[in-house]
Measured scan of single mutants.
Amino acid sequence: TCPLCKTELNIGSKDPPNFNTCTECKNQVCNLCGFNPTPHLTEIQEWLCLNCQTQRA
């Protein structure tokens, strides 16, 4: 489950994953609780959960 919103993560499912791993804290959170803060920078593959995003802001 997502630590932030308690959504079930579909780990091991044949569906596309509905979660990602935060590059900062390494927690697995669902796609609604994390995002790529710099989608225009292709050389930085970063994906932050809302916790890390808030701490950085």
Rank of each mutant, 00 (worst) to 15 (best):
T1R: 05
T1K: 03
C2W: 00
C2S: 01
C2E: 02
C5D: 02
C5W: 00
K6L: 03
T7C: 02
T7V: 05
T7P: 05
T7L: 07
E8A: 05
E8Y: 01
E8S: 08
L9V: 09
N10Q: 11
N10K: 15
N10F: 08
I11F: 09
I11A: 06
G12I: 14
G12A: 03
G12H: 06
S13G: 02
S13L: 05
S13K: 15
S13E: 05
K14W: 02
K14H: 13
D15R: 05
D15N: 12
D15Q: 11
D15G: 07
P16A: 03
P16M: 08
P16F: 12
P17C: 02
P17H: 03
N18V: 04
N18D: 11
N18G: 08
N18K: 10
N18S: 07
F19K: 01
F19G: 10
F19W: 09
N20W: 06
N20P: 06
T21P: 06
T21W: 14
C22S: 02
C22H: 02
C22K: 01
T23V: 13
T23D: 12
T23G: 14
T23Y: 12
T23F: 15
E24H: 09
E24Y: 03
E24M: 09
E24Q: 07
C25P: 02
C25F: 01
K26L: 14
K26P: 07
K26R: 13
K26I: 11
K26F: 10
K26W: 10
K26M: 15
N27R: 14
N27V: 15
Q28A: 13
Q28I: 02
V29T: 07
C30P: 01
N31V: 12
N31Q: 11
L32G: 15
L32H: 13
C33I: 00
C33Q: 02
G34C: 11
G34T: 00
G34P: 02
G34A: 08
G34S: 08
F35L: 15
N36P: 07
N36M: 12
N36R: 12
P37R: 12
P37N: 01
P37V: 14
P39R: 11
P39H: 03
P39Y: 07
P39Q: 14
H40K: 09
H40I: 10
H40Y: 07
T42Q: 13
T42F: 02
E43K: 11
E43F: 04
E43L: 03
I44R: 07
Q45F: 07
Q45T: 06
Q45S: 10
E46Q: 11
E46M: 05
W47L: 13
W47H: 07
L48D: 04
L48T: 08
L48Y: 08
L48Q: 04
C49M: 00
C49S: 00
C49D: 02
C49V: 01
C49T: 00
L50N: 12
L50A: 14
L50W: 05
L50H: 14
N51A: 10
N51D: 06
N51G: 08
N51T: 09
C52T: 01
C52P: 00
C52N: 00
Q53G: 10
Q53A: 05
Q53F: 04
Q53Y: 05
Q53C: 03
T54R: 14
T54D: 12
T54L: 02
